[in-house]
Computed example of a mutant assay.
Amino acid sequence: MKLKFDGFIVALIAMIILAYIYPDLVQAQNGQLFETISTIGVSLIFFFYGLKLSFREIKDGLKNWKLHVCIQLFTFALFPLIILLFRPFIQNAIQEQFWLSFYFLAALPSTVSSSVVMVSIARGNVPAAIFNASISGLIGVLVTPLLMQSFIQFEEVSVLGDVYWGLIKEIIIPVILGLLLQPYLGKWASKYSKQLSKFDKAVILSIVYSSFAESFLSDVFHKVGTIYLSALFIAVIVFFFLVYGIVYLITLYVLKFNREDQITALFCGSKKSLTHGSVFSKFLFAGNPNLGLYFLPLMVFHAFQIFVVTIIAQRYANQYNEEILTKK
Rank of each mutant, 00 (worst) to 15 (best):
F79L: 00
S115N: 15
R87I: 14
I176H: 13
I90V: 13
V159H: 10
F154C: 15
P80V: 07
L84C: 00
S113I: 13
G140D: 04
L146F: 08
P88R: 06
I135S: 13
P127F: 10
L146P: 06
N125I: 04
G161F: 11
S110G: 02
I168M: 12
S134Q: 00
G137C: 08
V143G: 01
I135H: 09
L84S: 08
L81P: 07
P109G: 09
F86S: 13
F98L: 04
Q95D: 10
P174L: 01
E155A: 15
G124T: 10
S120H: 12
F76E: 01
I90K: 01
L105G: 01
F98K: 02
I90T: 06
T144F: 07
S134W: 04
L146I: 12
S113W: 10
V163C: 04
V143L: 04
A128N: 12
S158A: 14
L167Y: 07
S134G: 11
L84P: 03
P88N: 08
F74P: 08
E155Y: 05
L84V: 03
S136Y: 09
V112W: 07
I130M: 00
W165I: 15
S136R: 04
F131W: 02
L167V: 05
L160Q: 05
N125D: 06
E156P: 13
L142T: 15
I94F: 01
S110T: 15
S158V: 11
P145I: 06
S120F: 07
V163W: 00
S114Q: 00
D162L: 05
L108P: 13
Y103I: 00
P127T: 11
W165E: 10
I172T: 15
A133R: 05
G137Y: 04
E155F: 11
N132K: 04
L138I: 02
P80R: 03
S113P: 13
R123V: 10
N125V: 05
A77R: 03
L78F: 08
G166L: 02
F74I: 02
I90Y: 05
F86Y: 04
F131G: 03
S120G: 13
F89Q: 00
F131A: 00
V157H: 12
F104H: 05
N132C: 10
P109Y: 03
Y164W: 06
G140R: 00
A93W: 11
A122D: 01
R123M: 09
I168A: 09
V126P: 05
I173A: 11
G124P: 08
Q149S: 15
L167W: 02
L73Y: 08
S110E: 04
F98H: 01
Y103W: 05
Y164T: 06
V175M: 12
F74M: 13
I135F: 13
A133P: 04
N92S: 06
I173P: 08
I121M: 06
L146D: 10
L108D: 11
I172R: 03
G161V: 12
F131D: 02
W99E: 06
I121T: 09
E96K: 10
G166P: 05
N132S: 11
